[in-house]
């Protein structure tokens, strides 16, 4: 069984952390993943930096630009992660934009992920229909779970289609926004969380966008299985560096 599914079957709420590979320093990638696991994080999204991250707000944009300036490439990230499974056992997901994957070759990319022990992929700009028509077979061949996003504007019909195509979890974008732009949840979000819960989907949901502290983590995971934090963690890395990652995790979910 894929590590993601296994983790989703465990009781309790999941904390998942996103960070941009190669940021703040080129060589920080593996250290960050190890620290996150040590501090009780359940799942990690490793961001493959892209020059034009159009679904991301300023924080992740800036980390991507910096990572690319540090020299990060798809090939170098795979090289850094080569031995990651010797020290890390939590699920790992690669998150990025589709063009770098396309240039690497979708099949070669998936094969490499499988070699390394990557469990899933999130490519926000690889749309559902293209995935199903052209790439589902390849992803499955290499045991990779593709994660789709939904937003408050996604219709029930489309959510059902996405649920059908999903094999792990659904990434629930908390509000109509790019990453890192809104914090705190209001009535709109509560209603949205309720609506999704009432659909009784096959796949559990993990909420992302707008979660930055214990309160928002609690709210997001009231009905959903877990929550993803990205921008707030990147901000922490920018300000405090990589030495005391546990301090950040404690502000979200004390050990």
């Amino acid at each position: 069984m894929n590590r993601i599914n296994k983790k989703l079957n465990e009781p309790g709420k999941l904390l998942s952390i996103y960070f941009t590979a190669g940021y703040p320093k080129m060589a920080d990638t593996v250290h960050i993943i190890q620290e996150l696991e040590k501090n009780g994080v359940d799942m990690v999204e490793i961001g493959l930096p892209f020059s034009d991250p159009l679904a991301d707000g300023p924080t992740i944009q800036q980390s991507s630009t910096a990572a690319l300036r540090n020299g990060m490439t798809t090939e170098k990230l795979f090289a850094q992660l080569k031995d990651i499974r010797k020290t890390v056992s939590i699920p790992l997901i690669l998150m990025g934009y589709f063009n770098p994957m396309l240039q690497y070759g979708v099949e070669a990319f998936c094969e490499k992920c499988n070699d390394i022990g990557i469990d899933g992929i999130i490519m926000p700009d690889l749309p559902l229909d293209v995935y199903l028509e052209e790439y589902e077979t390849t992803f499955k061949k290499f045991g990779l779970i593709n994660v789709f996003l939904i937003t408050p504007q996604t219709s029930d019909d489309r959510i059902r289609q996405i649920d059908k195509a999903s094999q792990g979890f659904i990434y629930m974008v908390s509000s109509a926004s790019v990453t890192g732009s809104k914090t705190g949840f209001g009535k709109t979000q509560t209603e949205y969380f309720d609506r999704i819960a009432s659909l009784k989907l096959h796949n559990p949901q993990i909420v992302g966008f707008g979660i930055n502290n214990a309160d928002t983590f609690q709210q997001a995971t009231g009905k959903a299985k877990g929550a993803i934090i990205g921008s707030a963690f990147i901000k922490y890395l920018t300000e405090k560096g990589v030495a005391n990652i546990g301090d950040f995790i404690k502000t979200i979910r004390p050990l």
């Binding site: 679904a55 700009d125 749309p127 996604t154």
Partner: peptide
């Protein structure tokens, strides 16, 4: 090739 946020 758009993120789901732009689909609607």
């Amino acid at each position: 090739f758009i993120p789901e946020m732009l689909y609607p």
